[in-house]
Design a protein around this nucleic acid. Sequence first.
DNA 1: TATTAGGATGTTG
DNA 2: CAACATCCTAATA
Length: 314
Amino acid sequence: MMSSPSRSHVYVDVSVFPHNHIMPYSEDHSKTFQGFPSMPEYMSRFDTMLSEDTARITRKSDTFTAMDRQDELLEYKEAGQDCVIDSTAGQSGQTDVEDRCLEQVQSLVLDEVQKDIETACKLLNITPDPVDWSSGQVQKWLLWTEHLYRLPQVGKAFQHLSGSDLCVMSEDDFRQRCLPCADVLFAHLDIWKTASWMKDRCSPQSSGFIGADDLCAEADSSCSGQPIHLWQFLRELLLKPYNYGRCIRWINKEKGIFKIEDSAHVAKLWGIRKNRPAMNYDKLSRSIRQYYKKGIIKKPDVSQRLVYQFVHPV
DNA sequence: TATTAGGATGTTG
DNA sequence: CAACATCCTAATA
């Protein structure tokens, strides 16, 4: 990817996230973290969100201790790709501007994290704060995360653990229970813990809907209206292409036409949401077909495999 | 082999 | 009872 000389650099302080491993950048980790929605992915999101001039988001490596720009910089390209070392030393001139950009981007990062977590909570029917999870909800979160990022299944290693049990575990505790993806899972959980902590700490009033959400998310699972419908679930997945685009995506958003790219995967996620471990695409598609006569989903005019269409697009 | 259509019947909130 | 979940046969790609 070319970077035009007119683009200014934005240095992102990621120290808001307590663990370095959230940001994979070393050779050895490039495989382990494949598909992991860590900073590079969030970064690439802002690359498209922010204006072209603002873009080219970079971060400082190694220490994560804020703004020492003498350190070498790692420039992230697309999510999942290797990073490029950009050895430009500190340009002390535009510090104030950069700091402001930094704050904005940080706030955007946290915003995106919060949004992702909210979506996942809706889809999983769990609370944002891992501490509140029952052992069943822990299993749900594990299954979901495993399937979403194609990790090996290690749910059994965490059986009968409540959310509070999970939250006090160290990364080493994680490693003892599951070797293959302990660091990834721990990092994920850490994002959830951190996000929840920051939500409590710095916004009891600001974001209006979060407070209401919190109150609602108390008691039990069936608070925000009846069990989720399959078509709603599919819509929620389609709403987050950065998270679920690998298994389901829009073909034509205006017309409501979408394609299931990985039928087994979508079925698994649906099964996790409904606590139906035996769910598969055979059964999921039967449920979709029930929507034909109800006028909720149909086959598009030119019928294609694994392609459906919402009758009433939004 | 995987997907599609739709009937029959059991389950669950 | 509605909304699936499960199971199944037959047709299609």
